[in-house]
Amino acid sequence: MSALVKFVDMHKSFGDLEILKGVTFSVERGEVVAIIGQSGSGKSTALRCMDRLETIQGGELWVCGHALHRDDVDLKALRRDVGIVFQSYNLFPHLTAEQNVALAPRLVASKSHAEASDIAQAVLSKVGLAEKRAAYPEQLSGGQQQRVAIARSLAMQPKLMLFDEVTSALDPKLTGEVLRVMERLAADGMTMILVTHEMQFARNVADRVVYMRDGRIHEMGGPEILIKPQTPELADFITHEQ
């Protein structure tokens, strides 16, 4: 079975500054991979490359069959295959929760108003917000907004979901409700790559943990490496995160 995501000695620089210095790893269909690492180690950049928000400078990067190291990427197709959720929810403030979710089905997948609205209601109930469909973003808590953002990505039925520190802006109680949604997604078999600082969560849901350090993968393995790290750097990182 072929990998859904495949990095082959991938390099990424901003100008002269090399941020990712040769990253190699792959993610199988249905896998949940947690990326951890110090601030500035290039986690977000790696994630953004996977949705082609950044172009790469060297090596290969395959995502859902799209060759992102080439120039002729079909962006529209890529973005139907990949969903991404950011730390700042980025909901559209002038649209209700339902309209936020229905926007892409309507405009990108050319669904009718009624169909798009049905899809929106279905994914909103999936994230436990069926009754908030008519609320505007500012009327929702941070956790609820983040769940709408997840629903908005899910509405396009992506094959791969990317999460970039989606709970960092939330207090512990609201963090819990977002993590539960992600846990359920993982249980449903969604392929997920998540950058996170929640070690407990990574240990519980991740099939694999990637520890990034200074633009490289420093250590990678099953969730048990969070308990028994092989390198002193990861051990050090884990003690400091707790």
Binding site: L75, K76, F86, N90, F92, R152
Partner: peptide
């Protein structure tokens, strides 16, 4: 209109024209 709004719309697969109309112009006007 914040950069993140446009990025989110790009990631949803909206075209440049759609992004401008629905994500930039509408809220800007409001």
């Amino acid at each position: 209109i914040k950069r993140g709004q446009i990025e989110a719309a790009e990631c949803l697969g909206l075209s440049r024209a759609q992004i401008f109309l629905h994500v930039v112009l509408r809220p800007a006007m409001e």
